[in-house]
Amino acid sequence: MLAILKREINSFFSTSVGSLVIALFLTLNSLLLWFIPGEFNILDNGFADLSSFFIIVPWIFLFLIPAVTMKAFSEEKKMGTYELLATKPISLKNIVLGKYFGAIILIYLALIPTMIYVITISELTNNSSNWDIGSTVGAYIGLFFLILAYAAVGIFTSTISKNQIVAFISSVFLCLFIYYGFDIISYFIQIPYFEINTLGMKSHFDNISRGVVDTRDLIYFISVSVFFLILTSINLRKD
């Protein structure tokens, strides 16, 4: 698994994918949070609060994570290297996990520079009692788990087609549906004693991102990831 993981990370940084993803992620965030006036602008809001970052970040990841994961298996299949990989003495589980954690490490690396936002806000705030660091830590924990789920969906969709674009678009759509789709459905359909929007990632992520870490939400994100990783290996074994 480690060999695959290393190879994945090397391939991210030997091509422009890795640096492009990190640069794009930081540019978009910084522009929206600090420069473009609007409801996400932290300076305009006037509160020592990173909550607008955690509102926009799931939407940016909706496009970035599929872009990172789309090539995981579809490229291997197209180049014909997947057969080679499958004949190596590595179990299928380890191949999938290696690719999965490779993508996750890249996204986590992109998150590290956002610490600058945290430091900037703590330096700028004139009344430190207003700056709720605990809530921010909770939100970062939520973000780590959201990435796990997004990446699992992305890895799964990269197995369904040889074409990377098909993998990308279906992954964006699937992530969007799981993140926000159930919220929309719950506007139209109501089932007694059951809230449909709790099936979606948004309600769970909103819950954690205000600073309340609940094991139920964490179990939800882990189950979504495990489910899609198992689907990935089932799909690969089928071929």
Binding site: S129, D132, G134, G138, R210, V212, D214, T215
Partner: peptide, 8 residues
């Protein structure tokens, strides 16, 4: 379940 309210 366990719930951790991390807000100050």
């Amino acid at each position: 379940y366990k719930r951790f309210d991390l807000t100050q």
